[in-house]
Simulated scan of single mutants.
Amino acid sequence: MITSDLHTLSGAYALHALEDDERAAFEHHLADCEACAREVAEFTATAARLGLAVSLRPTPGGRDQVLRRIAEVRQATPARTPRDRRERRARRAWWASRWILAASLAATAALGGTTVWQYQRAEDARAEAGRSRHASAELSAVLAAPDARSRTVRLADGAEGTVVVSTSRDRAVFLAAGMAEPPGGKVYQLWFDEHGVMRDAGLMDPRRTSQAVVLRGTVDDASAMGITVEPAGGSKEPTSRPVALLPFPT
């Protein structure tokens, strides 16, 4: 499937209408496509609002009422006259309509719960898209700063890392190319090195081997940055030896 085809799947993805292989391909594409992420958020929010507009919540005690009513209704005595058969068919149709209505209400109530969940996912996606736009703006600002300075070093397994620092913006960016994925349940964590004292500078995306990351926080007195392997979610301080130390350019 070519990339242009993937852009057309955002609506079907939001409605859970993709086959497993299409969904996997689209989710891989979604990680790097802000436009599709925004469309998925909007489609999902719209579907959620439509569902909430028609959803009904079961009345309190509804189950007990149904069970009590079943116990009170006597089963009709079998009969064979045409008239009784017509009445029996009419009665079956009446009960069938009530069961269909009950099933519809139950399904609608379940749909209401599903759409609430979908709406929350949409809001999460919208917030993530907002954070992505903010990070992209920060990244561009640092790289385009007139005083931006860079330094590139070789990392393990042939990978390459570049750190870019802007004194005027007091920010730094790390560009990784070809880094190995961290072990399962682990993540690469970035640190500001302030005269041997490590300060948390954020996490890298463990699913991507090449990426650009704006270090969290200002540079201040840091003269270098470090990278360690930490448990998923990161650590308050390094728990392993740095896999790389990159002195800041002067």
Results as ranks from 00 to 15, higher is better:
Arg98Cys: 15
Ser4Asn: 06
Glu138Lys: 11
Trp95Ile: 05
His28Asp: 14
Ser223Asn: 07
Asp64Ile: 08
Arg126Leu: 12
Ala144Glu: 09
Arg241Asp: 14
Val164Cys: 02
Ala156Leu: 14
Thr239Cys: 03
Ala25Asp: 07
Thr228Asp: 04
Met179Trp: 09
Pro249Leu: 12
Ala201Arg: 02
Ser166Thr: 03
Arg241Gln: 12
Ala144Cys: 08
Thr46Asn: 12
Met225Ala: 13
Leu111Ile: 09
Pro58Gly: 03
Met179Arg: 06
Arg69Met: 14
Glu181Leu: 14
Arg23Lys: 15
Glu39Met: 11
Asp5Leu: 03
Val54Arg: 06
Leu52Thr: 08
Val164Thr: 10
Ala31Val: 07
Thr108Trp: 02
Asp84Tyr: 01
Val197Tyr: 03
Lys236Asp: 15
Leu111Asn: 12
Asp193Tyr: 05
Asp193Gly: 04
Ala148Pro: 00
Ala201His: 02
Thr3Glu: 12
Ala76Thr: 08
Ala122Asn: 08
Trp117Cys: 13
Ser140Val: 13
Pro231Cys: 02
Ala159Pro: 06
Val153Arg: 06
Arg207Tyr: 10
Ser235Lys: 01
Thr3Ala: 12
Val73Phe: 13
Ala17Ile: 00
Glu72Cys: 08
Arg88Leu: 07
Leu101Pro: 03
Asp84Lys: 03
Ala90Tyr: 10
Ala47Trp: 01
Phe26Ala: 01
Asp147Leu: 05
Glu42Asn: 12
Thr115Leu: 09
Asp221Ile: 06
Ser210Gly: 01
Lys186Trp: 04
Glu128Phe: 08
Ser140Pro: 00
Gly112Gln: 04
Asp147Ala: 07
Arg241Ala: 15
Arg169Trp: 01
Ala156Phe: 05
Thr218Cys: 10
Ala93Lys: 11
Gly62Gln: 05
